[in-house]
């Protein structure tokens, strides 16, 4: 079963990396989101799956029972999802703003940063 999970994660990560290599900014951002999801799964599986008893301490006890799920990866994944979401949202907003300013999201045509102070142009523009 672990092998199946590993293969699924590898597929997810591979898709993400493939998208990351695209020339379209929107695809790149989707790729980041996919890789982010894959990494979150890795955290989740790093906590081992199998035990499905909720990690609650029964009244009167001082420690968790023997077969409880590991609560820490869930907390980590939750944090990572929130952070990943906000960063992807920022990147999407940035892409939208770039599109409105330049009219393209093809990285081949996005050369404004490179053109700023380029050593190869006689007249370096300082926009």
């Amino acid at each position: 079963m672990n092998l199946v999970y590993a293969a699924a994660l590898a597929a997810l990560m591979g898709c993400g990396l493939y998208m990351l290599l695209s020339r379209q900014v929107v695809r790149i951002i989707l790729g980041i989101a996919l890789i982010s999801a894959a990494v979150n799964f890795v955290i989740f599986f790093a906590g081992r799956i199998g035990a499905s008893v909720p990690p609650l301490i029964i009244e009167g006890e001082t420690a968790l029972g023997p077969d409880t799920a590991n609560p820490l990866p869930q907390a980590l994944v939750l944090t990572a999802i929130v952070i990943g979401f906000s960063l992807v949202a920022f990147a999407a907003a940035l892409a939208l703003k770039t599109y409105r300013e330049t009219g393209t999201l093809d990285t081949r045509e996005l050369g404004d940063a490179e053109a700023l102070g380029s050593p190869y142009t006689k007249e370096a523009s300082s926009k």
């Binding site: 900014v25 960063l87 920022f90 990147a91 940035l94 892409a95 770039t98 300013e101 404004d112 490179e114």
Partner: peptide, 13 residues
């Protein structure tokens, strides 16, 4: 500016 938007995209990714 346009250069900043472009630079930030590269930085971000």
């Amino acid at each position: 500016t346009r250069a900043q938007l472009d630079g930030t995209l590269k930085y971000a990714v």
